[in-house]
Design a protein around this nucleic acid. Structure first.
Length: 279
DNA sequence: CTCCAGGCTTACG
DNA sequence: CGTAAGCATGGA
């Protein structure tokens, strides 16, 4: 366990961890999370990110994408007054480079669910089937661990109809019938074609994994939140596409409109929508 | 009570 | 093709 400081620029830890992309960080005196099986405590003082963890600084820099050139990204996605104001409001919000397995399982749990329930279910899965890496802190269960879980033992996690999907995927990954890490080398579209083959994974969940775990910044996940806020801000840009197609139309518009870093734009819009709803 | 939540699968025209 | 019910669970 060691403590160190990372010098940053255009980084806002609170915005990054509370914008809904990760489910396993808690705000206490410090932000506390478990990353790659290690407890991480983080806080920010001005431009310095202070970390207490057994993980090395290079790993943390990569995790928080500290080396992303936000100025360049902002200049690309800043297409109008709306995005300009969101960038000013949430400046320093960065995407996180999540572990693909944890990210995929987490978003399978997100289907037709609330953030609160998703967070609780994931925490229970970690407590039941992860390892206690420190008093009260658990690692995310491995595919091998979940592959051994009986459906009746999974019930305590309260995943509902999503539980069999998670268990099935765990078996496939553990048995190497599905090569999750191999997706890293694929293009955005190829990766999406692979991910949607998984039971319980459609376009939206695939896009989340491609953006949050595989760093495909041209991914623009459209859920109910994004659909509503996009309708409100940019609704004139597409015609009444039938209900089922609408989210695809919005994503395609966003890719054209915000460009190759539209995934970043998505996260700023999402945090804005979270704020609007909590009022 | 009904409706909805970071959707997806299946069934039915 | 397209659309709509069904899905577990919990909170408003």
């Amino acid at each position: 366990m060691n403590m160190y400081r990372i010098n940053t620029r255009d980084f806002n830890l609170g915005n990054t961890l509370s914008c809904g992309q990760v489910f396993r960080w808690e705000r206490k005196e410090w932000w506390v999370g478990v990353v790659n099986g290690a407890v991480v405590r983080a806080k920010q003082e001005g431009n310095e990110l202070i970390i207490e963890s057994s993980l090395e600084a290079d790993y943390i820099r990569d995790y928080f994408r500290i080396d992303d050139d936000l100025e360049k990204i902002y200049s690309q996605i800043n297409r109008d007054k709306i995005m300009d104001s969101l960038i000013r409001k949430y400046r320093g919000l960065r995407l996180i480079r999540q572990d693909p397995w944890e990210c995929l399982v987490s978003y399978i749990c997100s289907s037709n669910n609330t953030i609160r329930n998703i967070t609780n279910s994931i925490r229970r899965m970690c407590e039941c089937f992860g390892m206690e890496v420190e008093e009260g802190h658990y690692s995310f269960p491995t595919p091998e661990a979940l592959a051994l879980v009986e459906p009746c033992d999974m019930e305590q996690c309260r995943l509902g109809f999503r539980a069999p999907r998670v268990l099935k995927l765990a078996s496939m990954v553990a048995n190497r019938e599905f090569d999750l890490d191999g997706i890293k080398a694929l293009s955005y579209k190829e990766g999406r074609d692979e991910l949607v083959k998984i039971d319980g994974v459609g376009n939206k969940i695939a896009d989340c994994v491609l953006l949050f775990a595989f760093g495909k910044l041209e991914s623009f996940p459209v859920d109910t939140h994004i659909e509503q806020i996009m309708e409100r801000f940019y609704g004139e840009n597409w015609k009444d596409a039938g209900k089922s197609k609408k989210r695809d139309v919005i994503a395609e518009f966003a890719r054209r409109y915000f460009g190759r870093y539209c995934g970043y734009a998505q996260e700023y819009l999402y945090l804005e929508d979270l704020g609007l709803r909590s009022q």
